[in-house]
Design a protein around this nucleic acid. Sequence first.
DNA 1: TCCTCCAAGATCATCGATTTTTTTTGTATC
DNA 2: GATACAAAAAAAATCGATGATCTTGGAGGA
Lengths: 226, 226
Amino acid sequence: MNAARTAGSVPTTLSTTLVARLRDSIMRGELLPGSKLNLDRLRAAFGVSLSPLREALCRLENDGLVALIDQRGYRVTPVSADNLAEIIRLRVELEGLAVKESIVHGDVAWEGRVLGTLHQLSRCKRGARSTEEQEAWETAHRAFHAELISACQMPLLMQFCATLHDQSDRYRRIFLKKHQPDRDVPAEHTAIAHAMIERRTRDATRILREHIERTGRNIQAALSVA
Amino acid sequence: MNAARTAGSVPTTLSTTLVARLRDSIMRGELLPGSKLNLDRLRAAFGVSLSPLREALCRLENDGLVALIDQRGYRVTPVSADNLAEIIRLRVELEGLAVKESIVHGDVAWEGRVLGTLHQLSRCKRGARSTEEQEAWETAHRAFHAELISACQMPLLMQFCATLHDQSDRYRRIFLKKHQPDRDVPAEHTAIAHAMIERRTRDATRILREHIERTGRNIQAALSVA
DNA sequence: TCCTCCAAGATCATCGATTTTTTTTGTATC
DNA sequence: GATACAAAAAAAATCGATGATCTTGGAGGA
């Protein structure tokens, strides 16, 4: 899963391109949680045939963004407080484990990549005006978190983390649209990166946990109002 | 994922039926790890068209049993010592977490279901002669492990565990085909079940870990010979 | 003898149309 | 006015065929 995002190669098939386009629509909340996905309308909207569309949707199922019910088509995965709570809980557990392993196995090249993505992220403006700036921040943010755990030498774990991260991002992007950052997020990112590079395992996992859980609480608050 | 297996409803679409049939073929090792899956031959072999076949394969990707490469078709997921090691490691971590939560949230009905599946498992003969008996044991074994963690109230975690369990089962079924059980597996199952019901969290997680890791070591041994 | 390039065959990806199932709508009955 | 049934419409699932891409094997040249 996340093939279109993690693979370095250029997407060559229509299906693969569609996966990315559909994912963006869902992540941005254009396709609302729980809403039915009419295949014929989607087909027309994206200008493709049914085969690649079905395949793309099937691949999004891996990422937990859509769900298929036999004879009844696809729906965007619904949101709920319970579901969000589990995502947060699992992110803490799994990213925590991945961070520990990354600290053990990371070499100098990895340290460089972590600082590199941190720098790129710092150059993006949060709460940006334009959509492009916002997208740039999202991409950089995702890349940074992926890089932190990239040295853990556990591909499956990295995949689980990426899936959970995507799902949690969807909640954040839908429910914290107008939310002004109430805390110094860049400082938190810097703190995590340095703790990891300096092999302060306890600090790294603690800061990461607080980082994830605080975002989770903010979303929960917005979710319970809606 | 694992929809065909976990859902109580009867599979109604061709795709859903195909998922189960293909899964069995891969789990049994009939379709060899790393082997290319020729769509045309599979289509003919199963007597279906390309559309449901592609969809079924796509769904098996979720379970990590096949992998798609653009313009180059599907392959059965290859096996490796590293991959197995990660599966074992993650099973210990994730099932361990799920067991703890299940112990916290499990009620009397759950205790009953655990003992029920344990009993059914005990009535199946391991290392059975016939294929049917072997399949019956596999099904009962999977159901037992699923029931242990069914009270954890974390659907995503249960899904992760089911996926990892399937993958680890594939290794066991392929590489321990002729393997005679070298230990008292039924006693281990009984010990885990009772530890959980009696809320001895430390015992439960420890026995489960040993259970998983010992099987893992046996497979690793067979794998390194092959 | 070995390498490179090209054409033929095989295979994957996509399409438009058909079949099957579900959902909606309209009508008759209680 | 509500409920049950039947027909029509909508939608999903599947199919067979076409177009695009990759792979294989052989001819030509170094």
